[in-house]
Design a protein around this nucleic acid. Sequence first.
DNA 1: ATCCTAATGATAAAATTAATAGACATCGCC
DNA 2: GGCGATGTCTATTAATTTTATCATTAGGAT
Lengths: 149, 149
Amino acid sequence: MLTKKGKYGLKAMMHLAGRPPGEPSLVAEIAAANDIPKKFLDTILGELRNAGLVNSKKGKGGGYTLARSAKEIRVGHIIRVLDGPLAPIQCASKTSYRRCDDCRDEKGCGVRLVMLEAREAIATVLDNRTLADMRAFALQGEAEFTYII
Amino acid sequence: MLTKKGKYGLKAMMHLAGRPPGEPSLVAEIAAANDIPKKFLDTILGELRNAGLVNSKKGKGGGYTLARSAKEIRVGHIIRVLDGPLAPIQCASKTSYRRCDDCRDEKGCGVRLVMLEAREAIATVLDNRTLADMRAFALQGEAEFTYII
DNA sequence: ATCCTAATGATAAAATTAATAGACATCGCC
DNA sequence: GGCGATGTCTATTAATTTTATCATTAGGAT
């Protein structure tokens, strides 16, 4: 399960992806638009900046912008930064493997082997979907919605 | 990420799957064999029993057994019982959907749409893999291991 | 220089969830 | 009835997540 941090982060990134490139958004603005506690969002965007996914500018006319085009930002990357590894279990993670302290014989651990499959499945989705895809999905869903009305 | 509860539960189920069908295992035995705190395992097996995945018998000669054959127990089921929904976000869950309180327009929520894909990918793996598969994996990994030696 | 704006950082409080322990009840067999 | 096992209930501890408070730093405009 994603934490709220992860969810908020994704929403904030979506928000940024929806602005004309280069035009910064204020944290307060993003927070208000997405029902996110402003201060929490501050730290979230801070982490995303440290990870090189967004840029920030202080002072008047400042705010946050995407560091790259939305096409070049993968959903999996955002989630790893905010919520940690995608794998259901650390010994099945590729980007941040760690041995289980319990678990005598890792090679013969069925749990791990199944979780490797799961990790693969998750990563295949999340590392191939970009912010741009996500945004396109949203607009499409939106359109279907208004069409029905 | 799985919690320890989930991981311990899977390991315990593997343990049961490895016994001749019908022959009960003691909690103490399973706990010792897998480095699981006995009391914690008690409650885990309790939940698995309530979910109908294992049977228990008290008194001498008692213990836990699988409620069905290992081929008929899906990994996804075990995880759902112990750790909750597979979906990365509740509004993307099929078995226990819940709306996000934030999120004005669910239809047009890109995050949700991508997470629906992710959920699908995860469930495809975990709902098709059974305890028996997991055990087969383990034996195979084990074999490769000893082969290398 | 000074003032306003906005991000930054450090810290800590509150809330939630996860992980474990203990004591006692219950059940079933011999 | 006594022993060997699970079952239940409660409490405690630890870890993590979420939010709030307050002070700081940097940039731009006047």
